[in-house]
Amino acid sequence: MSTNEFYSLKVNGVDHHVSDAWIGESLLYVLRERLGLPGSKGACEQGECGSCTVFIDGAAVCSCLVMAASAVESEIATVEGLNADGTLTDVQEAFVTEGAVQCGFCTPGLVMAVHHLLDENDSPSELEVKEALSGNICRCTGYGRIFAAVDKVVAVRKGALS
């Protein structure tokens, strides 16, 4: 059994200490407002838009629905940690070249969802892509460019394109 009014979170492999926090705070809030990691975006705070998607112990979940203080024993990965050296991943690169970023608000969450999908399935069907991204809302692109970016990454990873 453990309690945690002062607690630490392991984010992208680094321990971060949180103190004087209200324990009902969401992980999204703590990442952005207390730990200086504003990559995860907040729009709905009710699990509907996916812009706050992070990985908790490898599962892609909405950080707005994770009680931050409950994640002390978990490995948390955010969009900031995708490439340790801060360069763009192949997914981020494809989002840029395929025009999948307009206002960009949905992008971090979508990038996380796409990485998660392609880690589990290196050649998803169109339906599998749509299903995997169904929890991420984009109000700008109409999704066509996002699907094109996914196709691009799949092709590049297979060596068909460079």
């Binding site: 009902g24 969401s26 705070e45 009710q46 707005c64 009680m67 409950s70």
Partner: peptide
């Protein structure tokens, strides 16, 4: 009691529930 949090945290985020301990 907290499990996945997909019901509880919506209520906490919207100030409908203020758990005293979890």
């Amino acid at each position: 009691i907290l499990n996945g949090g997909t019901d509880l945290m919506v209520e906490v985020n919207f100030n409908h529930r203020h758990p005293s301990s979890v």
